[in-house]
Design a protein around this nucleic acid. Structure first.
Length: 427
RNA sequence: GGAGAGGUGGCAGAGUGGUCGAAUGCGCGGGUUUGCUAAACCCGUGAGCUCGUAAGGGUUCCGCAGGUUCAAAUCCUGUCCUCUCCGCCA
């Protein structure tokens, strides 16, 4: 959420931001509701004051008659109080609903545009695009997986439906190697490694900006509980500080979470979805940072730098994209994606995403920090970034590693975690 | 899954219907004393919202949500969490 006062003091800027982000939010309605709510709140507080005063007098009444009279007075106030409380609550709920639809402000440098067509490429990775000889047709990862018995899509579909799969043989080792590679790197960079729950309470989902139920939801919910399968460890890691006030000295908190991720991909039918590219379940190593407001921009650069380093190490060509305002989603102030070159699609495809959510996510989560010796508390800033989304990284490694002799060479960076350096025909 | 116990301020820990935003201790901040340090002593010390230029005021908050009552940390219901014991189990 955006700060209530900020909205009221920057109505025009907030409206323009909604327009740039292609989000429909009724800012005027919010202002009206806030005004009305505050007036009612004042009334309520006045009445409360009265009620408290009467209640206090009763304790000191000398005679039973006096007491009864005061009680009657109290009862009358209470009746009014109940009605007024309901009014205030209703207004609050309405106001909150509108406030939640207002997206975060965008970074002044974020490209302005309605959709991903306005995303701008800001740089390319150092690994060159593959140069195969004339006439060599690279296989895509589905064909490679078939050839070397690495992934069982049919089995996955039989057991759990389309979009699920079994990894087999070297693909299993590759998943584990990618995880270890990423986690080891992050630990060296001061991140605390965590394996998180794969489910979370729905209020944690909402706090991090995910909508657990509804027609458009990306989220699988678990029947008869208020739990959902997580779409990313961002949810569980973000929830870690929900309703907490942390000492500023303990910040920044750099966390790296390993989890499974589940996505319904509702409405994604027909979109590029062959093979591992768009699946209902995958594993992911995610970075998450809680920090002071003045630190968030530099941490955002750090997260992007780590993502680049990982794909540099894996020898995968990529481009870095500065996400346009219309494609940012609700919580991000700024977002960079890495799009890896995928020979099978003959195109770049998103493999990581890192967002600076400033205090937007923290406000919903109610994650605060306190500076020793200072009055009050403030909202932390939160950032998240993909270290490795295994499914897509695996796809990239397989497709990029293929040689003209048909074998698939593993990147050096993974060799410490693998018992083979090449995938080829089985004996 | 069964049986109990409990969730109070940064921490520990009192408080079982009104005088409780909450004793006391520790911690923390400031001060006095002191050659320095320590000790001792004194004063102060939660957060949210809101009114006010400010000083300051009001209101809400004792896990969370409801209920009873003129009045709830305190009584009732539900719920979440923690701990102990038993059972089951990778």
């Amino acid at each position: 959420m955006l700060d209530r006062k900020f909205i009221l003091e920057n109505i025009e800027a907030v409206k323009l931001n909604c327009k740039n982000r292609n989000v429909v939010a009724d800012v005027d309605r919010f202002v009206e509701l806030d005004q009305a709510r505050r007036e009612k709140q004042q009334e309520l507080e006045a009445l409360n004051r009265e009620s408290n005063a009467v209640a206090k007098q009763i304790g000191k009444c000398a005679t039973p008659e006096e007491r009864e009279a005061k009680k009657e007075e109290g009862r009358a106030i209470r009746e009014k109080l109940v009605a007024l409380e309901k009014e205030v609550k209703d207004l609050e709920a309405q106001e909150d609903l509108v406030q939640r639809t207002i997206p975060n402000m965008a970074h002044p440098d974020s490209p302005i545009g309605n959709d991903d067509g306005s995303n701008t490429v800001v740089e390319y990775g150092p690994t060159p695009l593959p140069k195969w000889s004339e006439g060599f047709k690279p296989l895509d990862h589905v064909e490679l997986a078939e050839k070397y018995d690495l992934i069982d899509f049919e089995g996955g579909a039989r057991v759990a439906g389309a979009g699920f799969y079994f990894l087999k043989n070297e693909a299993v080792m590759l998943e584990l190697a990618l995880e270890q590679f990423a986690v080891n790197k992050l630990v060296k960079k001061g991140f605390t490694p965590m394996i998180t729950p794969d489910v979370a309470r729905n209020d944690v989902l909402q706090g991090t900006g995910y909508i657990p139920r509804g027609a458009e939801t990306q989220i699988y919910s678990i029947d008869k509980t208020d739990l959902s399968l997580i779409a990313t460890a961002e949810i569980t890691l973000g929830g870690l500080l929900a309703n907490e006030t942390i000492d500023s000295e303990k910040l920044p908190l750099k966390l790296c979470g390993v989890s499974h991720c589940f996505r319904t991909e509702a409405g994604a039918a027909g979109r590029a979805s062959r093979g591992l590219y768009r699946v209902h379940q995958f594993s992911k190593v995610e970075m998450f940072v809680f920090c002071l407001p003045e630190q968030s921009e530099s941490f955002h650069a750090e997260l992007l730098g780590i993502e680049r380093e990982i794909f540099d190490d894996l020898k995968i060509p990529y481009q870095v994209v500065d996400t346009a305002t219309g494609d940012l989603g609700g919580p991000a102030y700024r977002k960079f994606d890495i799009e890896a070159w995928m020979p099978g699609r003959n195109a770049y495809g998103e493999v990581t995403s890192t967002s600076n959510c400033t205090d937007y996510q923290a406000r919903r989560l109610n994650a605060r920090y306190k500076v020793k010796g200072e009055k009050g508390s403030h909202f932390v800033h939160t950032l998240n970034g993909t270290a490795v989304a295994i499914s897509r990284a695996l796809l990239s490694v397989l497709e990029m590693g293929q040689q003209e002799d048909g074998t698939i060479v593993m990147p050096d960076a993974l060799l410490p975690y693998l018992s083979f350096d090449r995938i080829g025909p089985k004996n």
